[in-house]
Structures are given as C-alpha cells and as structure tokens.
Design a protein around this nucleic acid. Sequence first.
RNA 1: UCGGGUGUCGUCCAAUGGUAGGACAGCAGACUCUGGAUCUGCCUAUCGAGGUUCGAAUCCUUGCACCCGAGCCA
Length: 570
Amino acid sequence: MTPSDSKASSDFIRTIIAQDIKEGKYEGPVHTRFPPEPNGYLHIGHAKSICLNFGIAAEHTGGLCNLRFDDTNPVKEEAEYIEAIREDVRWLGFDWGDREYYASDYFDRLYEFALRLVREGRAYVDDLTPEEIREYRGTPFEAGRESPYRNRTVEENLDLLERMRKGEFPDGSRVLRAKIDMAHPNLNMRDPVMYRVLHAPHHRTGNRWCIYPMYDFAHGQSDAIEGITHSICTLEFEDHRPLYDWFLDALKIHHPRQIEFARLNLTHTVMSKRKLLKLVEEGHVEGWDDPRMPTLSGLRRRGYTPEAIRDFCARIGVAKKDSTVDIALLEHCLREDLNKKAPRVMGVLRPLKIVIKNYPAGKVDELNAVNNPEDPSAGTRKVPFSGVLYIERDDFMEDPPKKFYRLAPGREVRLRYAYFITCVDVIKDEKTGEIVELHCTYDPETRGGDAPDERKVKATLHWVSAAHAIPAEVRLFDHLFSEADPEKGMEEKDFPALLNPDSRKTLKECFVEPSLKGAAPGRQFQLERLGYFCVDSKDSREDHLVLNRTVTLRDTWAKIRKKEAKKQGG
RNA sequence: UCGGGUGUCGUCCAAUGGUAGGACAGCAGACUCUGGAUCUGCCUAUCGAGGUUCGAAUCCUUGCACCCGAGCCA
C-alpha cells in the first residue's frame, strides 16, 4: 500500500481532534455521535454529518460513533421517522453497533440534574406567560428584565417543579428556567427555559411525563452521559455553546468538546426539513422518498448509490464558511460510480419504427453485446435482432444540421453490436406530416458492427427489436427547482412557486431489451447513450416495468444543440 | 445598534510567513462500435485600505460585506 492509498482527507475538525489526541485530552478513544431529531427524513445534508461523525470514529483505533435520537419534543416527533432514519444510516454504510440511544432514555437523569440546579438555587420555576417571557427577554440591543418569580425560595421551586411533573398545571402555565443573567449579550444566557409543560404522549415514554426538557437542557448532558469526546454540530449552535458549558460546569459532569461546521446547501434544491415537509404535505412531491427529493430515501429510490454519496461528502470538505455546493458535483460522483458498476443494456425512450427492407422476413438473429466495457468480468449477453426495430426518435433528422451525425435520409450509421444500416425512405402520416417509420437497408457484411472494408460511420445508435422488446414506463427527472438558489429573496411560504414544472416527465411508451424481463425493484443499469436508470421500488410490477432515470450521461450533443439554440435566440 | 461567526477561481475545498494548488463546472482538442468512458491542454481567485517583513491569503490596524441569534423548536 502506498501512502496515498491510505491518505485520509483532512479538515479543521480532524485537525483539532488529532491535536486533542496528541495532547492526551481525553482518556478513552474518540467518541462521536450522530444526533437526529425524529421529526422528518434524513437528507443529503445529514449525510455530510453522518460521514463526518462515523468517518472520524472509524479513522481512530477504538473510535465509536453513537446513533442518538434527540426526541425531546413529542408533539413533533413520530416513531415512523425513527425506522426511516435507521434504515437510511445503515444504507449509507454505517454501523452504530448496539449504541442506539434516545434523549428520552435520559429523562430521569435529566430531571435529577434539574432538581440539583434548583436545590443549588441555579434554576427556578417561572409563572410568566410565553408572551411575557419573550418580552422580559429583551432584544439583542437591550438587556432583559428579571422575572418577578426569579427569587422564589428553593423549597417553593422544588414544590412547584414536582407539581409540574405530576401534571397539576396546564401546558404553557409554568416553566423551569436556569438562573443565569438577564442582561447577558448572548440571548441564550438570559435565563433559558429548561423544562416546559407538555401534556402529550411520547412515542417512547408514553404518558410517563408531562414535562419535557428543552433541547438545550438535554443535548449537552446526553453527550456527557454517553462519554462523547467530540460533539460535532452545525454553526447555528455556536452561540449555544456557552450555555452547554454552563450546564455542564454547574452539574460538574463530563465535558465534550463541541465543534461547529457549516451545513450543506445544494443548488437547485432546498434542504431544510421544514421546507421538505411542506413539499410533502402540500403534495408538490409524492412523499419523502419522491425521487426528486434530496432525502436519502429519495436519492435511493432515484438510483443513487451510497458509495457516490459518501464520495461526494468526502469531496465537498468541511469548513465553517456558508456554502452552496453545485449539484453537478453530486451528479459527477454518481456517474463516476455507476460508470464502473452499471451493466449496459439498450432501450428506446421515444420509439421510431424502422423496417429493414432487405432483411430476410421472419429471421431472428442473436447478437453478442458487452455488458460493461469498464468491467470485462461482467461478461456478454445475446440481444435479438430482426427486420423491424425501434430506434430513438432523436436519432433521426430529415434535414440534419451540420453537427448532427446520426441517421438521416441516405446516410449510413451503425446499430450497436448489429449492422450498418442506411435510411432509404421516410414514411409520413399523410395528414399530420409526422414521421411514422423509416425504411432502411442493412449490410449483411457488417454483422457485429464492423465493416470488412473498414469503412467508417459517424454514429452508433441504440435499438431494440420490435417483436422482442418489453414495454416500459420511464420517468425522467430533472432538478426540483430551476433556480440555482430557491431560497434567495423568497418568502419562506412562497418558495414552492419556484418549483421546476418539468422536474418529472413520464414516458409511457418506451421499450427495453428482453434481458430486462422481470427486473427486480431497485435494479440499476445504464441504457446506452441515455443515462443510468433503475427499476422503481414502489410502482414497478412484473407486468408493468417502471424505470427511473437516475442521471443522464454527459451529453455533448445536447450541449451543442443548446449552444446553437442560444446563438439563434440572440 | 448588541453577541457569535465567515470572507481564496463561476462553485466547493487546500495552502498555517516562502512558487496560490486540487476537484467540479466551462472552453478547446485527441481517441472511441455509447456524441458515454478515457486522455491532453486552456481559462479564472486571496473583500477593500493602510502597516510589519527580504517575503503576507496567512501577522497588525481599520473599514466593508455576508450568515446566525430575541421558540415553552431542534
């Protein structure tokens, strides 16, 4: 192994951790955690965090990464999301062993912690209404005011907190607050709420609790309880860090080192769970796993591979600068992976019928086709050829421009792995003028795709034999939003207006080669010259094949066409 | 106006006082039974102004821009 083989990517977080280890700051091995809230599905932004946390643990001997659900708000969280999150993390390729934890596992200890702070006079029960609390908090520019309930006795606080826990008070009537500093320039330190009354059943603790800890009072302590050494989170928690420090110090418990990084943004999509949830709830997409969604379940259904996503996460790096990664990089990683792995088959999306006039009637030939030119071990297969075929409509032009070198009247091209054919006649619908079929001749000497006289053709087309082809429905996907940045200058509630109306096109009359018969859900392959596709895991049936286009191939011809169009359009 | 952050090619990430480099995107070409893949070449950047230094993306001063923060959300 050369040094470059094992060269791990580095970033400022890994640098800090390496330094901490060098200085012997922590007793045990590196211990991280991935802490999702089960209130939605995981998206590619979470993948960045998952790869970071599990990746760092894996890079150190004895390193561990926990999966912890931050389930402190029963009104927003659902058990359905937990299973989905587990599946997504596993699919991405990470293993948390038996270390699956829940903040709700710690409710008893958290309550004990709260009691301790109350006894020490560091927390109090406040009777202010939510509106009053906001008012008393002040603003970033002016100090807040202390609540009139701030100086209750320890006994009174203990009594009130216990009665909150027992359910004597309605939602919103009282909270437990930390007694810190109402004039602190960091708003998080102005007596933050630790517990609120919420008469709601919890998906794990049922009706055992009617008060629930705030995230700020649960997160740091959960990390401490689990012995996390490095608590990696996103930038918006940076100014919560002093508060976490305050709790940890007051409680005198293990103190992980928190490091913040910038969350991932991607062009042509949205990433916040709120927005994704809105797309789902308002029916702009078919669900969390709609193949256009940036969710892991959506990407999976679309045909993305875990390897491609991990590669992407490695390439985007980690930093503290707000950034928006071009979705083209994600697509590049995908193509690179699929190019190595996906078997090639032929299929026609917009069929144009071809009749080979000089081909013996009724004859069927079996031609050899390479399964994957990038991988000889993938072998070869037989593809049936006959006198009536379909080719792609886009592969013929009656009046071709200079740079078009596919089929045209009088022109010879190659049918992949088959024969050279020449177009001799164009048959049109008399009324509409639409081209309904092409008449061609073939050269029997070119069987397999090479001419004995070494003559060349400029194009090779994909095709299927009409009598042997399998019908399929094919869904073509494009960016969810046509704008690169749908968050820019847009009221949050209005962003669906920017949705790309052409993000999904369904083609119902496609044909694929017979080797795809009975293809299992999720199966992936390349349709030569068209792109990578997979069998839809939800809608495909034995007798009704449904394919998703995962991503197109790089398409130089499309680029030329676009450029020409732009030139003419001015 | 307060607190916390961040400013390097179009985009993302490096360079930690010593030649500003890589990837994606773009452009041009080679090759090709996928206009795929592959290969080659090209293009473009240190937020501004001062200073320290033989030498500054990096240190200092100052200005500017952008992001986060006033949930009983996470």
